[in-house]
Write a protein that binds this DNA or RNA. Structure first.
Lengths: 155, 155
DNA sequence: GTAGCTGCAAACAATTTGCACACCG
DNA sequence: CGGTGTGCAAATTGTTTGCAGCTAC
């Protein structure tokens, strides 16, 4: 599974995403923090370049993959098949990062997202799976909608 | 670059799978019926060819898109980003196709799937969305696991 | 000084599209 | 005979990989 917890007590240090602390890696994490919601790798890359950061698309993809692999970032796939990333763990690391399985409510317009946890959904998935005799259940749930600011209240 | 969608002139016709009854269309539907679970377009295409049917990849994609568009087929996206298709509605069309929103429990091994409906999940999605002030909610839920035949009960 | 990090460009795979022709009706 | 479904191959697009140089440590 993905519940890898090596450190007992999280030090107040920076996230060891990679062995070396490079400017590119920091720039990427920085922009990921600024982003309110999910962004595509291409989008992140473009914005990084716009900010004047010298970084390559390859590096963006590589860091994104690393972040996702270690659970520091969430990945959702749009209907287009594009991968959208977003920092997931708690940056300040005061307590515990998102160790729990949760999902996201993503705005179709701005990509702004809200983390939501649905224990009942998990339970439901387990139940229907068990009813069908399926084991080793995993699920992907993505909720899309329009955030308050982009909701067209006036018809 | 940007996703420019120019094809907006879609003739609003009746829910016909295809205008003409061609051998290729029948072959595709036939193999879709045989398939117990979700299959990728490439896979479907390969099997069609294996059976001796003369059909092009393009045609497979086109029919799959049509079927999905009219709701006769379901589409799920694997983590790889590949699109998997499966006949969803009632083939003979005697009653009514799956007009209701439902999800699938797909086997990781054989792709065999079971249709499941989770009214509570729908309700949950609506609720958390409303709580966050989101509107026009839509969601994608895919449950993966191992079917009874592929479950490794004996460790 | 080394080794991991970076980045350009080519490789890659899935999917779409243009265009000419065959086939359905 | 007409229109459109078909199919090949090229174009597109998002992502990965090879390799040579740079940089952090």
């Amino acid at each position: 599974m993905t519940a890898e917890r090596t450190g007992t007590s999280a030090p107040a240090g920076p996230p060891s995403t990679r062995l070396r602390n490079t400017r590119q890696a920091e720039a990427l994490e920085s922009i990921l923090r600024e982003a309110d919601g999910f962004r595509t790798a291409q989008d992140l890359f473009a914005e990084l370049r716009r900010r004047g950061d010298r970084i390559g698309l390859t590096t963006v993809y590589r860091h994104l993959a690393t972040l996702a692999e270690q659970g520091s970032a969430d990945v959702v796939h749009t209907a287009d098949g594009e991968s959208q990333y977003r920092l997931c763990g708690v940056p300040a690391g005061t307590g515990k990062p998102a160790e729990d399985h949760h999902h996201h409510l993503v705005c179709r317009q701005c990509g702004r997202s809200v983390e939501v946890s649905g224990p009942e959904v998990e339970a439901w998935a387990e139940r229907v799976a068990a009813a069908a005799g399926y084991t080793e259940i995993s699920h992907t749930l993505e909720v899309f909608g329009l955030c308050p600011e982009h909701s067209s209240t006036a018809g």
